[in-house]
Structure formats: structure tokens, C-alpha cells
Computed example of a mutant assay.
Amino acid sequence: MGFHTFDPARADQLDDPTRYAYLSVDELLALFDPAADDVVADLGSGTGFYTDDVAAAAGTVYAVDVQPEMHERYREKGLPDNVTPVTATVESLPVGALDAVVSTMTFHEFATPDAMDAVADALAPGGRVALGDWTRTGAGDAGPPLEERYAAADAVELCEDAGITVHRAEDRRETFVLSGTL
């Protein structure tokens, strides 16, 4: 599975509320239980669809995306005051001492040992990880092709190899979720 990004020309699809059928706001927030003063990085934030939900529950949010076009789109939509766009790869995260890192439907775009080591390095002790993405065990009726996806067990292995303790990981109909701590 190789690194790729979502086509910015199709960015309207990222703001489709039917995405909540695969990962709801309540489920995402329950994966890492943010506090009002938490510092959180949203990896692969895109146009900010889920970032906005995280921002409503956290103190400071870094919207991390490798594509400046996605940040431009997010700015056009309107960024919450507590969100700062960061153009970077996951492997080169320029922020640290994070209380939590989240990734919604983008783990398959960056899942490598180096990326997960960078996540672990960016987390403060006890920092939390919340992942929700398309699963390789799904039917493939939505999301990226099955061959571009990871299963929950793959995410567990990458997290544990980086020193992240996984507390929950499960494959569902089309997606998987994972929560853990450093």
C-alpha cells in the first residue's frame, strides 16, 4: 500500500454529512475523550469535516494535512478560532506535547512505522490516539479500494510497535476504530 492523497478537486465529497454513518461525532470523541483544554492534532484533516467536531470539544487543534489546497478550502469554509492549519506529513509533525492525536478516514494514507513513531514522539506521556478508517475487511461499497485499506489488526501492530498501548480495536461493516494511549 503506497502513500496517496485525496484529490482536492473532489474535496466537496469530504464535507458530505453522510460520512457520519461510518463514524459519528459521538463515537469519534468517545475514542479519546477530549478535555476542554486538550491540545489535539487531526492527521489528514482535509477540509475540516471532523476537525470542526474535535475543535468544539478541545482547547487547541492542529489541522494537519500534506496538501495546502485542503487548508485553503478549510479557510474558505471558516476555521474555528482554536484551529491552526499545519501543512506537513505525519512523519514530520512539527508539533509536540500533544494530549491526543486523531485520524478519521485517513490512516490508510499515512500508515507506516515511521509515521506511527512520529505520532508517539509528538504525544505527551499518557497522550491518546483515536483512529477511525476504512477497513480492509469491509465490503468495499464506500471509501477507497480494499487493497488500499488496513484492518484493525494492522493498525494495532503499527501502534504497538511505536509504543502505543491499544485499548480498543475492532473491525466493523466498512470501518475500523482504535483507541490507545502512549
Rank of each mutant, 00 (worst) to 15 (best):
Asp33Leu: 10
Leu146Ala: 14
Leu31Gly: 07
Glu147Phe: 05
Val102Pro: 01
Val102Arg: 00
Arg75Ile: 03
Asp154Tyr: 03
Gln67Asp: 15
Glu91Ile: 01
Ala142Lys: 06
Ser45His: 04
Pro113Lys: 09
Phe110Thr: 02
Glu170Leu: 05
Thr5Ala: 13
Thr51Ile: 03
Asp26Cys: 04
Pro8Thr: 12
Arg173Trp: 14
Arg136Glu: 15
Ala57Asn: 03
Gly96Tyr: 05
Leu178Cys: 08
Ala97Val: 00
Ser92Val: 08
Ser92Phe: 02
Pro68Leu: 04
Pro17Phe: 08
Glu174Ile: 01
Leu14Arg: 04
Val61Asn: 09
Ala36Gln: 14
Leu79Arg: 04
His71Leu: 07
Val25Pro: 06
Gly59Val: 02
Ala88Asp: 14
Arg19Met: 11
Val64Trp: 00
Leu131Asp: 07
Leu79Thr: 05
Pro144Leu: 03
Phe32Gln: 09
Asp33Ile: 03
Thr165Gln: 15
Thr60Cys: 12
Met116Thr: 05
His4Arg: 15
Arg73Ile: 08
Glu147Ala: 14
Glu148Phe: 03
Asp117Gly: 11
Phe6Gln: 08
Pro144Asn: 09
Pro8Tyr: 07
Gly143Phe: 01
Arg168Leu: 14
Ser24Phe: 03
Asp161Lys: 10
Val119Gln: 12
Glu148Leu: 09
Gly78Ser: 13
Arg149Ile: 02
Asp141Leu: 01
Pro94Ile: 05
Val40Trp: 00
Ile164Val: 15
Asp33Pro: 10
Val95Tyr: 06
Val102Thr: 13
Ala115Pro: 01
Ala56Arg: 11
Val119Trp: 06
Arg136Leu: 13
Glu69Cys: 08
Met70Ile: 06
